Simulated scan of single mutants.
Amino acid sequence: MSTTGTEAGAGTLPIIPDTSAVAPKDARALSKLFFRELAVLEEGTHEYQYARNTLIEMNMSLVRYAAGRFRHRADEMEDIVQVGMIGLIKAIDRFELSREVEFTTFAVPYIVGEIKRFFRDTSWAVHVPRRLQEARVELAKATEELSTRLGRTPTVKELAELMSLTEEEVIEARLASNGYNSSSLDAALSGDDEEGDASLTDFIGSEDPAMELVEDFHSLAPLIADLDDRDRHIIHLRFVEELTQAEIGERLGCSQMHVSRLLARTMKRLRAGLLETG
Rank of each mutant, 00 (worst) to 15 (best):
A198K: 12
R64M: 07
D75I: 11
D226S: 14
R232H: 08
G253V: 04
L162K: 04
M211R: 15
T166E: 13
S184V: 02
L162D: 00
A187M: 09
A51S: 06
G249R: 03
K157A: 15
A246N: 11
R251V: 02
E134S: 09
G9A: 08
L162C: 05
C254S: 06
I92D: 04
A107M: 01
L262Y: 03
L270Q: 12
R131Q: 12
H236N: 10
V22Q: 02
V214K: 11
P154C: 07
G84N: 11
H127V: 14
L237M: 13
E241M: 01
A10I: 08
G253H: 06
E167D: 11
E194M: 09
E168N: 11
S219E: 06
I248M: 00
T19L: 11
F239P: 08
M1R: 04
A66D: 00
L262K: 09
Q256F: 01
E138K: 06
V137Q: 10
R152K: 14
I234Q: 01
E145Q: 13
Q49W: 01
F106V: 02
L88I: 00
A21F: 07
L55T: 03
I92A: 01
S177E: 15
R69S: 08
E161Y: 05
S31Y: 06
T148G: 09
T12D: 13
L165Q: 10
G249W: 02
D93G: 00
D216F: 12
V240G: 09
L30G: 06
S147K: 08
V214P: 03
G273Q: 05
I234M: 09
A225S: 10
K25Y: 01
F118T: 01
P222I: 13
E114F: 01
D228Q: 12
G273L: 05
E242G: 04
A27H: 00
A21N: 06
G87M: 04
G5A: 05
N53S: 08
E242K: 07
T54R: 00
Y48F: 08
D18Y: 14
T6Q: 12
R271W: 07
E134G: 07
P109L: 09
D93P: 04
M85D: 01
E144K: 15
E37P: 08
E134M: 04
K141C: 06
L132N: 02
I235Y: 05
E134A: 11
S190D: 15
G273D: 05
S147C: 09
V214C: 06
N53M: 06
T45H: 04
K25S: 14
E242L: 12
E169D: 13
D208I: 08
R271S: 11
E134C: 01
T122P: 06
T166D: 05
R73A: 12
G151V: 11
Y110Q: 11
K32L: 13
H236P: 02
M1A: 07
E145C: 09
I115T: 05
E167V: 05
P14D: 09
H46I: 03
E102R: 03
